[in-house]
């Protein structure tokens, strides 16, 4: 007989951690302060301020995801190719920053980039012109890339390590050069890793408000910042929930797109 009650903690977890919170978000999102049904909170996304913030969020998270992908893939290839003894150590070095507090890492960048910060001090030491990087979208992208790069490297590295060396040798054996081996064997076989890496970078980038708070100096509003403010400063849970639902919709859409890509990658012929 199966001991079904062993599943109880998980049911409890799902109930309290997933179903009830989502239910509450839906409830607040579709009601006004007096508890009446309304779609105003969701449609509020169409207001110029919100639209702009959402657009900025999408743009910056796309850019940082792309930069992460273009940085992580060659890096994962190098890690795969490097000699066995050093391999584990190099991955370890890469994952090491993940063990430090996320806030701390982001604030470190603030110190580096701020006006009298390390970055500009070094520039002036080299007699180069000062460079305003803090409080710009570029600084936020930098923060996102720095914080989320390991989440792109690891899944791609894992999937590359799983590719059977014989399969790559077989491609060479059949006459393929380096470029062809990469484009028709290595790349298609690493799609699952790319998809999970993209998901793990894109979703937190889209929803972040901490990075934009610290490195954007409160001047650049991402959709995350707006939602945060609705919940804290404005204490308007209904509007915050409505905007959250819109953001969730965008995440669901992006996941759906990625899933199509992945299943395409699994089986295609001529």
């Amino acid at each position: 007989m199966y001991k079904k009650y062993f599943a109880f903690p998980y049911v409890f977890w799902i109930l309290c951690g997933t179903i009830i919170p989502i239910g509450m978000i839906f409830y607040y999102g579709f009601t006004d302060r007096s508890g009446m049904f309304t779609t105003a909170n969701v449609l509020a996304i169409l207001e110029p301020v919100h639209r702009k913030a959402l657009g900025m969020s999408l743009l910056l998270s796309l850019i940082s995801t792309l930069i992460c992908l273009l940085t992580a893939f060659p890096l994962a290839l190098i890690l795969k190719g490097s000699r066995l003894g050093r391999k584990g150590f190099m991955v370890f070095i890469f994952v090491l920053p993940m063990w430090m507090n996320f806030l701390l890492r982001t604030m470190a960048w603030q110190v580096i980039l701020e006006k009298g910060g390390i970055f500009n001090t070094m520039l002036s030491y080299l007699h180069l012109p000062q460079f305003q990087l803090i409080n710009t979208p570029a600084a936020i992208v930098l923060g996102m890339v720095y914080d989320f790069l390991p989440f792109m490297v690891l899944p791609i590295y894992n999937v590359l390590m799983k590719i059977d060396g014989n399969i790559i040798e077989a491609a060479y054996d059949l006459g393929a050069g380096r470029g062809k081996v990469f484009s028709s064997v290595v790349l298609p076989l690493s799609v699952p890793g790319i998809v999970s890496g993209v998901t793990m970078v894109f979703v937190p980038s889209l929803t972040t408000f901490v990075i934009s708070n610290i490195l954007g100096g409160g001047k650049i509003y991402l959709i995350g910042n707006i939602i945060e403010q609705e919940f804290t400063t404005s204490a308007n849970w209904n509007l915050g929930s409505g905007l959250s639902l819109v953001m969730m919709l965008f995440i669901v859409i992006s996941m759906a797109i990625l899933r199509v890509l992945d299943s395409k990658g699994e089986g295609n012929f001529i």
């Binding site: 014989n166 040798e169 077989a170 054996d173 059949l174 393929a176 298609p188 089986g267 295609n268 012929f269």
Partner: peptide, 25 residues
Amino acid sequence: LPPNKRNINTVFQKYALFPHMSVGG
């Protein structure tokens, strides 16, 4: 000479077929 330049083909121990392609591919 690298393997892709040799007029030699190999059947590998674990077949090493490309899992993302069909038989024809």
